[in-house]
Design a protein around this nucleic acid. Structure first.
Length: 582
RNA sequence: GUCCCAGUAGCUCAGCUGGAUAGAGCAAUGCCCUUCUAAGGCAUCGGUCGGGGGUUCGAAUCUCUCCUGGGACACCA
């Protein structure tokens, strides 16, 4: 259990012993550093319940706290705020416990299994900016959950069964009408070679998409092609496999660049298999209705104070909607993995969709009451004009180009003596850090403007700043090693600079927990900045290797090592790699 | 029309399970390099927390209402 949690637990017992019942006591970082390092505000709340003077309760509690060797400078101020600071001995012991095992300052979550759905890449088209946030936030949430002891499966959930793939096939047929895949009556073997390359794929979708928008006739043909595929027409299935092969390889390559990994590489098509039994099941529950040629599931409840549109189960052309595949996917996941929770990372604009799917799943009892379905929406990534990067016309910058841009921008600023091939690898790491950190530092729900110049800037709250600072720590420790200067433990506190770092380190557990609970990495991203920044202040004010007091010097080196390891752990959670120099 | 999200410093944002004097980064101004990567650090400047009412000892935070901006409302995903 973390240091703060332990203290809070002790405080709670203390308060109970004093005769007051309370569920939790919160020890929070003080916003009046002149009065103490931490504050306890619960005396006021207790006074409200017990109808007494808050200062009276605060005084009783403070008397007890004064006897505790962990605390110094216990005082009461204002309406009944209790301020305390940590004693040097206690602070030092905390640091050494953290060095022994960082889990001495991490609060684990209850054991459970979560499936995270943060892919959604479409096999018919290139990954674009729209996929950036789900990849970054989803991957970081997964790593955070793992750090906190939660078992996870991430599913890429590829978009491989909808109209985009139908559009690509249609356009392919227009170009190569003689390919046997499109002939429903063809019974022979299909060619071994692949009629599509990644390049043609990237080019063909935007074109087909535009055509479909302009011509209703073309769109109708695409719908028909999609329906034929979904009905499992032999030639189209073979072609589909070939497209998948090409596309998946490329998608994996780009997710790789973003340090985004999936344990499950399923797609909508894998869920689609379950659609017939799903529909039979829904019918047996009397939940399916006919409506305007389509089949729907009504979701409106009498208790609703506003309108909830029905779920579209089968379109009038007999194909499945994405609501159906999502529902079938829940069916599949429950049967295969029986997770405690399923987390869906998607743009906030999809909230109605997920509300509908979740309602349908609960109404039909596809999930039991213990399975939690959670939609984790995020804000839009906007262009410099403040408008979202459009995705449907295909006329947007691909994710790949965007990452290259960041890489190029960061490459310019690397040390001149770093040469190829190393230079390329480091530029990639720094570029990715710029993109990822910028994506994770705003609150999840906030829309933000993608400004590559700003993100790659080395001043301020950016990925490159964090990497640079972390590298300095690495570099310092390397120098110490070269000079045969050893260090083991933290034995003394030298000044307010190193003390401030320690206080930041104490907050690690709270920061991880808070980020996990809010499902937003901004808290954690900000925490790394604070920790790093406090180290930089210390670094610029103290000559560590030149310190004559040997005990102090080794304490400082040990502290540097602790901050370094903490930073590396946190950067790793955010999906950011750190080079040795830049 | 219904529902969702947002409005905090010149700009970009954090804080929103109510707590003391609202914080960061950028920009601006002025300092600190014979020094472990100055890609750094320090200081200053900067605020009717969209408006108004309510609850409370206490409201950026809860509530009501209005204004402004963005978004979603079945046969795209």
């Amino acid at each position: 259990m973390s240091f703060i949690k332990t203290i809070e637990k002790d405080l709670k017992e203390l308060v109970n012993k004093l005769g007051y019942q309370i569920d939790n006591i919160t020890l929070s970082t003080s916003n009046r550093p002149d009065l103490g390092e931490y504050q306890i505000n619960d005396a006021m709340n207790l006074a409200k319940i017990y109808k007494t003077n808050p200062r009276e309760i605060a005084t009783k509690l403070a008397e007890k706290l004064q006897e505790d060797k962990r605390f110094i400078n216990v005082n009461i101020a204002g309406a009944g705020f209790i301020n305390i600071s940590l004693s040097d001995d206690y602070l030092i012991s905390c640091m050494n416990k953290m060095m022994e095992d960082v889990y001495n300052n991490i609060d684990l979550q209850n054991k459970k299994t979560i499936i995270l759905d943060y892919g959604g890449a479409n096999v018919a088209k290139a990954l674009h900016v729209g996929h950036l946030r789900s990849a970054n936030i989803g991957e970081a949430l997964k790593r955070l959950a793992n750090t906190l002891g939660v078992k996870t499966y991430a599913d890429a959930h590829l978009g491989d069964w909808g109209r985009p793939i139908g559009l690509v096939m249609l356009e392919l047929e227009k170009r190569n009408p003689n390919l046997p895949y499109f002939d429903p009556n063809y019974e022979g073997d299909y060619p071994k070679d692949n009629p599509v390359s990644n390049a043609t794929l990237m080019e063909i979708y935007p074109l087909a998409s535009t055509k479909a928008k302009e011509s209703e006739e073309y769109m109708e043909e695409a719908r028909d092609m999609t329906a034929r595929l979904q009905n499992g027409e032999r030639g189209l299935m073979v072609l589909w496999q070939k497209i998948m092969e090409v596309s998946k390889t490329d998608i994996k390559r780009i997710y790789d660049r973003l340090n985004t990994t999936f344990e499950i590489w399923n797609g909508e098509s894998d869920s689609a298999i379950y659609i017939p039994e799903l529909i039979t099941y829904l019918e047996s529950k009397n939940l399916v209705k006919d409506s305007e040629g389509a089949r729907i599931v009504e979701l409106q409840e009498s208790t609703d104070d506003h309108e909830i549109p029905p779920l579209l189960l089968v379109k009038s052309n007999k194909t499945a909607s994405y609501q159906t595949t999502d529902l079938a996917c829940i069916w599949e996941r429950v049967n295969k993995y029986n997770p405690n929770e399923i987390w869906y990372l998607a743009d906030a604009r999809q909230s109605l969709h997920f509300e509908q799917v979740f309602r349908a799943a609960q109404k039909a009892k596809i999930v039991n009451e213990n399975t939690k379905l959670e939609f984790i929406p995020f804000g839009t990534v906007n262009g410099l004009d403040g408008k979202p990067f459009k995705t449907r016309d295909g006329d947007v910058m691909s994710l790949e180009n965007l990452l290259d841009l960041a890489k190029m921008e960061c490459e310019k600023k690397l040390l001149p003596n770093i040469t190829e091939p190393e230079r390329d690898k480091i530029a990639e790491m720094v570029g990715i850090s710029a993109v990822k950190y910028a994506d994770l530092i705003p609150h999840r729900l906030t829309d933000y403007i993608f400004d590559i110049t700003k993100f790659s800037d080395l001043d301020g709250k950016t990925g490159p700043y964090l990497l640079y600072s972390t590298i300095r720590m690495k570099s310092l420790l390397k120098k110490a090693k070269e000079a045969n200067i050893s260090y083991q433990s933290i034995d003394v506190i030298g000044n307010n600079f190193d003390r401030d770092i320690m206080l930041n380190l104490i907050n690690l557990a709270g920061s991880l927990t808070k980020s996990y609970e809010s499902r937003s990495l901004n808290e954690l991203a900000d925490y790394i900045y604070k920790l790093t920044s406090s180290y930089n202040k210390f670094y610029s004010d103290n000559r560590i290797l030149d310190e004559e007091n040997i005990t102090l010097r080794s304490s400082w080196l040990a502290l540097t090592n602790l901050v370094l390891n903490t930073n590396l752990m946190l950067l790793n959670i955010l999906g950011i790699n750190c080079p040795d120099k830049m």
